[in-house]
């Protein structure tokens, strides 16, 4: 083992050194933790999906496929599709708002860049329930937004904004926008400025330089940001509950309700597993696309 450590294998690809089993002692604690607290619960979840529900919760060990069939009932299918749609809209908006933000921050002087980045992550220092309640204060019929709108004479009567799908989108967007900005900022900031200069020097207008050089090279960061937003947005259940008023349920609420309200553990497990599988697939696709995008920048 020591030998492998000292002598990098000649076949190792540029920039990568094969170390054999050497990293095992370093990897083991984390891997064991992940296996125990990730693989085991997910395995248990998968196991539950094939059994009957108990009357007061729990599992009755009689094999059935009903739980999987039930997913395709219009009621549940609708919620699943709606979750995907809402999380997708939130991700798209986060990208549209976050990209210019990240681009602007990357262009600031080092001092102001730090200030801007701190401002971006500042909300994370406050409990998210408190921040969500703040949105209720803002959006309800007697809330600040409605007061301002009426005060400015834009509307006569309050607009009901709270407890709508739009309110959920606003809440999720607010919650996860920093997770879009940070990876985007990182990828824009590490771009060699001479690439843009080269484009300019070759006659590209600022817009063309952005479109053909800066933007394509920031795509891996954008994809990472999209995943960072989409994954938690899709499985969030607190915001739909509080700001969405529980009317527009997302899959996260559904899972929670199955376990705690309906006491249908097997079906709750099925929904949770479906969500997990779906999100893992999204991440796999993302990393494959991202690898293809970054194939170029690898330096020998």
């Amino acid at each position: 083992m020591t030998e492998t450590l000292q002598r990098p294998a000649p076949a190792a690809r540029a920039g990568r050194v094969r170390l054999g089993l050497a990293p095992a002692p370093f990897l083991a604690p984390g891997m064991i933790y992940l296996i125990v607290f990730m693989a085991v619960p997910v395995g248990l979840l998968a196991f539950y999906t094939f059994f009957e529900r108990g009357r007061f919760g729990g599992i009755v060990f009689e094999f059935t496929l009903d739980n999987w069939v039930k997913l395709f009932e219009p009621l549940y299918l609708g919620v699943i599709l709606q979750s995907i749609a809402l999380a997708g809209i939130v991700t798209l908006l986060a990208l549209l708002i976050g990209y210019p933000m990240a681009y602007a921050i990357a262009g600031l002087s080092p001092k102001w860049r730090t200030v801007a980045l701190v401002a971006v992550v500042l909300p994370f220092w406050t409990n998210f329930l408190i921040r969500t309640y703040a949105w209720i204060l803002l959006l309800n019929n007697a809330g600040w937004v409605n007061q301002w709108l009426q005060g400015l004479g834009i509307t006569d009567a309050p607009i009901s904004m709270l407890y709508t799908p739009q309110a959920i989108v606003v809440g999720l967007l607010y919650m996860y926008l920093p997770l879009m900005v940070l990876p985007l900022y990182a990828s824009l900031q590490q771009l060699d400025p001479s690439l843009r200069e080269a484009a300019t020097n070759l006659g590209a207008t600022p817009w063309r330089a952005f479109r053909t050089v800066t933007f394509p090279l920031s795509l891996p960061g954008a994809l990472t940001g999209c995943i960072f937003v989409f994954v938690p947005a899709m499985s969030n259940f607190v915001i739909p509950e509080l700001i969405g008023g529980g009317k527009t349920i997302m899959i996260g609420n559904l899972v929670r309700d199955q376990f705690f309200e309906a006491r249908d553990w097997p079906f709750g497990a099925t929904l949770a597993l479906l969500l997990t599988i779906f999100l893992v697939l999204v991440i796999v696709v993302q990393s494959a696309v991202s690898r293809r995008l970054t194939e170029g920048p690898r330096r020998g």
């Binding site: 080269a198 300019t200 170029g296």
Partner: peptide, 20 residues
């Protein structure tokens, strides 16, 4: 403006577009 000058430059880092 820089993009209209009849001057081309070879950069020290070469600044090749890695995605092309």
């Amino acid at each position: 403006p820089a993009h209209k000058r009849p001057v081309n430059m070879m950069f020290q880092s070469y600044a090749l577009f890695p995605h092309m």
